[in-house]
Simulated scan of single mutants.
Amino acid sequence: MIADGLHDVPDDRIAAVVTSLQMMARPAPRPEIEGPWRLERLVQPDAEAYRAIYRKIGDEWLWFSRILMADEELLAIIRHPEVEIYALKVGDDVEGLLELDFRVPGEAELGFFGVGSSLVGGGAARWMMNRALELAWNRPINRFWVHTCTLDHPGALAFYIRTGFVPFKRQIEIEPDPRLRGVSMASLGRTPLLAR
């Protein structure tokens, strides 16, 4: 248990509040608009290609876990037969990432979900989430879950709740700041680097 009050975070760390959410039954799909987007499944992606998409979508939000992984560890996840990875494409351009993890029997985890900044607010995320719900609940699962944090898009938590996910746990995560390790550009992310 963390004591009430403010707690210092070392200069070389970042801190976020992580909220985990779940749904135990398939919800009705939310209204969506058609757009120029389509989902393309990435079958047996290589580490470099996967990380390029991951960075394109996640650098702004300081996604770094998959950047720090050794290739072997990353490939063991993204090439696992119970993990499905999709690129949201507009024409030939990748503008979103959807990753579904079915490795735990009876469950699906929405491992990564995001659209490029040019698509935020234009209906692409809702369209992609409806596809995620279809893909997840077409499997024999009884739980679909996701986690988001205060480093993600400010509307992410509300978006997941509107989708039908229900919060069930909050945690504080403190990690080494990836920007100090050359993982993400220092100009990215909404958490400023502290003056050194």
Rank of each mutant, 00 (worst) to 15 (best):
L193N: 03
W61H: 04
V83K: 04
Q44A: 13
D71Q: 14
W61S: 02
R131H: 06
L74W: 13
D177G: 12
L180C: 13
R51Q: 04
P140T: 04
D101Q: 09
L6Q: 00
L100R: 03
I2L: 14
D93C: 08
P45L: 13
G116I: 12
E32Q: 12
F144C: 07
F159V: 09
F168N: 02
G182L: 15
A158R: 15
A124Y: 04
K56W: 01
M69A: 07
G182N: 12
M185A: 14
P178E: 04
L110C: 06
I141V: 11
E175L: 15
E175D: 04
T163Y: 11
M129A: 04
E175V: 15
D92A: 14
F159D: 04
V43K: 09
W63K: 10
A124P: 11
G114C: 06
A25L: 08
L21I: 05
G106L: 11
S117R: 10
M128I: 08
S187R: 14
Q171A: 08
I53F: 08
G91F: 06
V183Q: 13
E73W: 12
D93W: 05
G123N: 03
A132G: 03
P81R: 06
I33L: 15
P176H: 08
D71M: 14
Y86G: 02
N138G: 08
G123C: 07
L119T: 00
P178C: 14
D59V: 09
V183N: 09
A70E: 05
I67C: 10
P29I: 12
F144D: 00
H147G: 07
D8P: 11
K56T: 01
L180V: 14
Q22G: 07
T191M: 14
G189P: 15
L151I: 15
A156S: 09
L193A: 02
V115G: 04
D46N: 13
G116Q: 04
G58N: 00
I174V: 13
H80P: 12
A87T: 00
R79N: 05
Y54G: 02
V18N: 02
V104S: 03
L6V: 04
G35K: 11
N130G: 05
F102S: 02
E72V: 15
D59K: 12
E99H: 06
R139S: 01
V43I: 15
A108N: 01
E82Y: 06
I77M: 13
L21Y: 05
T150P: 13
A186Q: 09
G5P: 07
P176R: 10
A195P: 09
D8V: 13
I78L: 12
L97N: 00
P45I: 13
A156C: 11
A124F: 08
W145G: 05
N142G: 09
L188Q: 10
V166E: 01
R179Y: 13
G106T: 03
R143Q: 02
